[in-house]
Design a protein around this nucleic acid. Structure first.
Length: 650
RNA sequence: GCCUCCGUAGCUCAGCUGGUAGAGCGACGCUCUCGUAAAGCGUAGGUCAUCGGUUCAAGUCCGAUCGGAGGCUCCA
């Protein structure tokens, strides 16, 4: 056996090492900085512990916390320490799984006699974890057989279940052999690995919360106690993450909706049902007006439909077969059964069907701001983002097969253009294709429609992911996601081809050939839900709406009562131009009034006093800029107009 | 729907191991009439989410219901 081995590094260079060297030795050989930062190694494309002995000819990359893989391992190892702490502190506790997740990790436990964790427990556990980290215990890998592992984990039924089923490749190596890791005196955890070399490499973590979670995510299985934590490469990263969470909490639309007097959720109404206050309604009106204008420009025709319909409609549409669980319960009236609508599509279909259609009418685009009701599970309801009653900016396009590609392409442009006007600039899409098993429609049609969606996405230039088999049973779809001001991803728009409803309702048009043909139907919503979109806007702008959307665009503050008449005149002039203006009279100090206007995030605060009356000017205190005195009203109006028009120029 | 946690004045919150409620902001009233992020004084306001139970006594303990939060599941 040669006493030297040659290792290839990611940059293609080679390094000669003594036989028996480990990945850790390699890192040390490359440099002390890397040795300190090294967490795991990728050996021939497979992640290994740093203690892994290298073979001649191996291609090795040293992984640090700078890479997503390194962070992943760091979080995984931190999860182990969490389990170690819990098992140490709670005799009789058993543990299930503990994977890394985005931003952190979790671990599922079962405490004896159904005990639960409290916030105080989290502090205790976290303190114990810090002891384990301080002790710098080495993580050691052990390879064994399933039989031995069952013996070793005999006190932990969930671990045994994992070993027996081997169903979860994330936890047990697939070769039939089983690996586990030990650290400290007695802690062992079933694990595929790899892990960081020792607990001393961890530290920038924090336990966040405790929650219930079903074993294997199955609601028939026991509910376990899940502890969530976050872990980072450095304290600085951890602090930045916690800061992001605070920022997100600060932007929470439920909190801002209350502070800015936009909407509320009276308990008397029921869960998931909101009322819109004048200020929220003002923003909504601007949103809806803009939407209508754009749809009118886009050759949509506006329709209105009722909120309930007889059961027969929902039988024909298939909703009662596929969607009944999410529908509000039926009402019996005059011997008929009525359901509140969860979707608008069947109504639009009936409008299409109201008379014979010619190919000359297609594409026919029917648009409605349609209120729908869906019985969302109580645990799923979340402010405006997930409510039980909401309004879709819903349209259904009926077109010929040949028109589908162009229609979808221009539709996608339309969607993106509207979203840009609302201040979103970063888009990502999902293209969901035909499900494996249950679907309606011919394969050829599916292929054609999916191609149409793909071509449209390619033309638009936005990044998209393919969700193979993720489409609805009735057709392929594109979902559009946006990134908000702090980088969070929200699904807003959806664009779905439907082969099913035209068939179920036996839709037809008469073609140029005089024959009857079946149209293709496209469902699409831009906001998705007006409520949800508004909620996302609130969080995106942190309540500081751009001027065109702001519920109050200008607030006029007379310095003293003697300036009231002038304030009224200025406000009247602005209102005459169509702006939303309020006057805050001099009943309290100017400073206090300015503060209130600022807290309400009003874009323009105008202060008017003696000088202004004399010169026909206003003092302009604009959100986010310096105070300007003596601005002529005309000049302010120009500025305001330019500001309001800004969103149209994106 | 399931699990855990939570629900005290309009809002934010205090109220130790059970002994019949407090603050700040806001509201209202009076004073101040003021040039760019909180003027001063005073007053009112709570069957402690609701219902039931334990107890001599419940905001505090127990149960149910309603509402909320975070998860799980769901979101064709």
């Amino acid at each position: 056996m040669a006493d030297q081995i040659t290792i290839t590094l990611p940059d293609g260079s080679c390094r000669v090492m003594a036989n028996g060297s480990t990945a850790a030795d390699l890192a040390a050989d490359i440099g002390p900085g890397l040795a300190r930062a090294a967490l795991v190694a990728e050996v021939n494309g497979i992640e290994r512990d740093l203690a892994t002995t290298l073979d001649d000819g191996d291609e090795v990359a040293i992984v640090t916390a700078d890479s997503p893989r390194g962070l992943y391992t760091l979080r995984h190892s931190t999860a182990h320490v969490l389990a170690q702490a819990v098992l140490d502190l709670y005799p009789g506790a058993t543990f299930a799984i503990g994977p890394p997740i985005e931003d952190g990790f979790y671990y599922d436990f079962a405490l004896p006699e159904g005990q639960t964790f409290s916030d105080e427990d989290l502090e205790r556990i976290e303190a114990k974890m810090r002891e384990i980290v301080a002790a710098d215990q080495a993580f050691e890998r052990h390879d064994t057989t399933a039989g031995e592992a069952l013996e070793l984990f005999s006190a932990h039924p969930y671990k045994c279940e994992i070993i027996r089923s081997k169903a979860d490749p994330g936890e047990v190596s697939t070769e039939g052999a089983v690996s586990y890791y030990s650290n400290g005196d007695s802690f062992v955890d079933l694990c595929r690995g790899p892990h960081v070399p020792s607990t001393g490499r961890l530290g920038a973590f924090k336990l966040m919360r405790v929650a219930g979670a079903y074993w294997r995510g199955d609601e028939r299985q026991p509910m376990l106690q899940r502890i969530y934590g976050t872990a980072w490469a450095s304290d600085k990263d951890l602090r930045a993450h916690l800061h992001r969470l605070e920022e997100a909490a600060r932007r929470d639309h439920r909190r801002l909706a209350h502070e800015l007097d936009l909407v509320s959720w009276p308990e008397e109404l029921g869960s998931g049902l909101a009322v819109w206050h004048p200020r929220g309604a003002a923003v909504r009106q601007v949103m809806e007006d803009y939407s209508r204008k754009r749809h009118a420009d886009g050759d949509y025709q506006f329709v209105y439909t009722p909120h309930i319909a007889k059961s027969g409609l929902w039988e024909t549409s298939g909703h009662l077969d596929y969607y009944a669980d999410s529908m509000y319960p039926p009402m019996e009236l005059d011997g008929a059964t009525y359901y509140p609508k969860p979707m608008n599509c069947p109504f639009h279909v009936l409008i299409y069907k109201s008379r014979q259609r010619s190919y000359r009418e297609l594409p026919l685009r029917l648009f409605e701001l349609g209120a729908v009701y869906r019985y969302e599970l109580s645990g799923a309801v979340h402010g405006l983002l997930r409510s039980r009653g909401f309004t879709q900016d819903d349209a259904h396009i009926f077109c010929t097969k040949d028109q589908t590609v162009d229609e979808i392409s221009s539709l996608l442009d339309f969607v993106l253009s509207v979203l840009r006007a609302f201040g979103f600039g970063e888009f990502e899409a999902n293209l969901s294709t035909k499900p494996e098993e249950k679907y309606v429609g011919a394969d050829d049609d599916w292929d054609a429609a999916t191609d149409a969606l793909r071509v449209a996405l390619d033309r638009s230039g936005i990044a998209y992911e393919l969700d193979e088999g993720g489409g609805a049973f009735y057709g392929p779809k594109i979902d559009i996601h946006v990134r908000d001001a702090i980088g969070r991803r929200w699904q807003l728009s959806t664009l779905q081809v439907d082969f099913q409803l035209p068939q179920r309702f036996d839709l037809e048009y008469v073609g140029a050939d005089g024959q009857r043909h079946r149209p293709v139907m496209v469902h699409r919503a831009l906001f998705g839900s007006v409520e949800r979109f508004f909620g996302v806007l609130i969080e995106h702008y942190a309540g500081a709406f751009p001027t065109w959307l702001a519920p109050v665009q200008v607030e006029v503050l007379p310095v003293a009562e003697t300036h009231d008449d002038y304030a009224v005149a200025v406000a009247g002039r602005l209102r005459g131009e169509g702006y939303r203006v309020e006057i805050r009279p001099a009943e309290e100090s100017l400073g206090a009034r300015i503060r209130k206007a600022k807290v309400e995030k009003v874009p323009y605060v105008l202060v008017v006093g003696d000088d202004d009356i004399a010169n026909g000017t206003v003092g302009v205190n604009a959100r986010g800029s310096e105070v300007e005195r003596g601005v002529p009203v005309d000049r302010f109006l120009e500025r305001l107009a330019a500001d309001v028009d800004e969103h149209e120029r994106v």
